[in-house]
Nucleic acid binder design. Structure first.
Lengths: 127, 127
DNA sequence: CTTGACTCTGCCGTCGGCGTGAAGGTCTAG
DNA sequence: CTAGACCTTCACGCCGACGGCAGAGTCAAG
């Protein structure tokens, strides 16, 4: 498919898709005309990229770890890289820390809401 | 205390502290010389600000909700503002969503690590 | 008085993930 | 053939939370 369709199927703008390619996250084929040609697997890849970006990973980190993504079987040209595992572990730790920070921030908000709410039942009790 | 001491006691640079003031998050007194004079409560305030910033709230949002922070009693000049609760709820929802996204991203990393790790015991099992 | 540490107010720089044109090729329906 | 939708490559703009520097004032110690 071409970039427009991939954009529609992923909810990501063409500009962002070109940016991902520039960062080495996607490597679509090219038609003789120069048009990019994407495969169906790229839909999943883009979703993965978006999830990882939303988690605060930068494109360099994603580029490093994303080659292991497809996950159909474990048949991957990957050399089961040693330093790759390092990067994965680091990012995982970052995410866990970030979750803790979010929990702390939410606790602050809850404390304020609890003090601020006119002694009603607490809204959105726990989620 | 002056800005340098507050900086040391909070681990935040003087530049950042001035920025927080510029954004209305801190309102230190001024000596006749123009020097900022902070109170002990500002130490806690800065920690709160840092936590909220780390959770992705921008300074405008923090400025909106932070007046309810001190929490010594509930004696607060606050009018138990109605729209304040709205902002609080919105930010809380944002945080919860963000935690979900982080969990999803971590799951991706775990999947890759699980496939990539040479069938050893999984590192950092659950945290 | 002088030195050195500290502080003040500007104001420009940075970084990442794009948005937003501009200027020009491609492709397909009628 | 032509219009219109789609695509290409530059290349500048943006935003938020500061970093960093310049030029100048403040203040306690010796």
């Amino acid at each position: 498919m071409r970039i427009g369709e991939l954009a529609r199927r992923t909810g990501v703008t063409p500009r962002a898709l070109r940016y991902y390619e520039e960062q080495g996250l996607l490597t679509p084929e090219r038609r003789p005309s120069g048009y990019r040609e994407y495969g169906d697997r790229d839909v999943d890849a883009v979703h993965g990229i978006r999830t990882l970006l939303a988690a605060g990973l930068n494109s360099a980190a994603i580029a490093e770890i994303l080659p292991g993504l497809p996950l159909p079987g474990q048949r991957q040209a990957g050399p089961t890289c040693p330093e790759l595992l390092d990067g994965l572990a680091r990012e995982r730790a970052r995410i866990t820390r970030q979750m803790d920070e979010l929990a702390a921030a939410r606790a602050i908000l809850d404390a304020i809401m609890g003090a601020e709410a006119p002694s009603e039942v607490i809204r959105t009790p726990r989620a």
